[in-house]
Structures are given as structure tokens and as C-alpha cells.
Design a protein around this nucleic acid. Structure first.
Lengths: 149, 149
DNA sequence: GTCAATTCCAGGTAAATTACACGGAATTAT
DNA sequence: ATAATTCCGTGTAATTTACCTGGAATTGAC
């Protein structure tokens, strides 16, 4: 039930980018604040760009900004994009994939799990995460967390 | 958000074993009915045995039976055992693991996800799965599914 | 007491995935 | 011009996954 670092980093990067509104946010900035390899971030954000979640501004003082309003990007969309799928087992996505489909003792369980995951991720948008992040920033953070979260 | 085949196979094997009550069920039988490599099953069931979920009967006509009542084995226990953990990210299991803990914009999301997964898996026992399996068997299956599910 | 059916065990392994790094080309504000 | 950035293809080490191999130990049936 693991979420890859690609998806984790993608989410954290989007919050960072979303937080700064229309001003383009550079990956150098994100990578420093979030302690993520810049080169790795490039690959991750490239996927987000091709999917129309962020848009890029090239050149000096360039960076990325959200291509859509905060509340129109769900965590489900992001995780599904970075992960390929959120389904716990292959037969749920791709019914053809399994001879047992419709006749399997565990199919119902995985289906319930899939729905629960989709409910949580689909019910959370970047707007929620940015809001949470801003709340956190109100309380001054201890030194060790400076520049993080 | 993937569940490994180890966990999938483990669940299916347990349903098969649970279905036959006190009579020990051989892995040959399980592997044929469920189309799972017998050697791979050995490794999986060995883990279940060491965890006290099944017990073995050695020798001819041996096999495995459940070590506990059907309704005292949750899917959560099995998946957690086979997978090591069901947490979506490491910082949830092991708070020490993350400098950002308590100060992270995405922590809440992963925590909600973890709870939802635990609710579904923890709310399902082998008794539920065996019952579902028995319902399926009432309707005669098409030829191609004979011996499956 | 032999034989067949089984669990038990200690390895090995090929393929895929993950989480990056490397090196540079193209673009643009200053 | 220069410096800051995105963009792009490729490489790679480590880990994980999903198995297989080859046997030893145990036990019921005859």
C-alpha cells in the first residue's frame, strides 16, 4: 500500500508551487525547501506539466505555476498520474486481466479498498493542502524546521 | 497503492484453507485451484505459520489449517504481515523517520489515507471472505472457471 | 519397512522498479 | 553577454518482486 516518492514529492512540490500563486516557482527553490533532488524533481514536474497541472515559464526567473485553480486539482489526479494507477490489484483496473473476475473471493475486498482510497484522495484538493500548510506557518516553527514543511 | 502478490496470494490461500475447516489443506491443492506457483506458496504460507495464523500437519495427507477461528483473522493482519506495513508513507509508521513530522503539508492526507485503508482491511475477516466465496459457489460457474475462484 | 505425499529449508535469479545522477541544449530576464 | 532557469535523453546502483532449484525431514498407508 505504498505511495512512491514520485507521488509524494509531486504533491509536496505542488503545494509549494500553489502557495506562491502566479509567481513562477523554480525547482531550485522547491528542492531546497523540500529537500528533494532537483534533477529528480525535474522529471516529476515534467509529468505534471505534460498532464496540464502546472505550466512552465522558461528562462531566468522562470519556474512553474499551477495551470488550474487550486481547488480543481485533486490528490487522486496527482497520485494516479505519478503512479499510473491507485488500484490495489490489477484486476480492478483492467477486468480483462483476470480469469477470476466476478468469481473471486477476494475481489470484493480489493474493490472496497479501491473505493476507500479514491474517496480520500479524490476528496482532497491542493486548496486543502495549501490551507493546511498556511495554518502550520502561522505558528513559528522551531529552528530545525526552518525552510521545511 | 499496490498490494503485492504475496499478500494477494496469502489471502486467497487462507480462504481456500479456511473453507475446508479442520481438514488439512495441501499446498498442491491450493496451488492448483488458485493457479499459484506451489513453491512460492510455500514461502508465503511459511510466514503465515510463523505468525500463528495457520498451523501445519506434516507428512502424507498433511497440509495446513487455520490456527484460529475465521472471524479472528482480519485482512489487515494478513496484509500487514505479508507487506511489512500498510502505511502509505514511511513517516506514518515511524515518526522518527521524518524531520517534517507535525510540520508537513501532506502529512494529514497520508494519515487519512492510512486510516481509511486500515478501516477497510481491519473490518474484513476471513469469515466474511469465506462466506462470500460460499455464496459464489452456489451459482454454478461456467466451465472455464471450474476449480477457480 | 518401504513408498508416496507432504512440509520444511536454504539458497539462487531474472526482470522490473525505484530513486536518483550526468551532461548538456534551449530559453529568457537583466 | 551572462546567469538562471527549463528541457531532454540517457545511465545506473540498489532494491524488490516473483518466482525456481534441489533437496532433507516427517508421516500415513500398505
Amino acid at each position: 500500500m505504498w505511495v512512491s516518492t514520485r507521488a509524494q514529492y509531486g504533491m509536496r512540490a505542488l503545494v509549494e508551487i500553489g502557495l506562491r500563486g502566479d509567481e513562477p516557482t523554480s525547482l531550485k527553490f522547491v528542492s531546497e525547501r523540500q529537500n528533494i533532488s532537483q534533477h529528480y524533481l525535474e522529471q516529476i514536474v515534467a509529468v505534471l506539466r505534460r498532464a496540464g497541472i502546472v505550466e512552465s515559464v522558461r528562462g531566468a526567473h522562470g519556474g512553474y505555476r499551477l495551470a488550474r485553480p487550486l481547488d480543481e486539482v485533486t490528490a487522486l489526479e496527482v497520485v494516479e498520474l505519478m503512479e499510473g494507477s491507485v488500484a490495489p490489484v490489477s484486476c480492478i483496473e483492467d477486468s480483462e486481466n483476470c480469469v477470476r473476475v466476478g468469481n473471486c473471493s477476494t475481489e470484493g475486498l480489493w474493490r472496497k479498498l479501491d473505493l476507500a482510497v479514491r474517496a480520500v484522495l479524490g476528496g482532497t484538493t491542493l486548496a486543502d493542502l495549501v490551507a493546511e500548510r498556511q495554518l502550520l506557518q502561522l505558528e513559528p516553527l522551531p529552528e530545525q524546521f526552518a525552510g521545511l514543511n
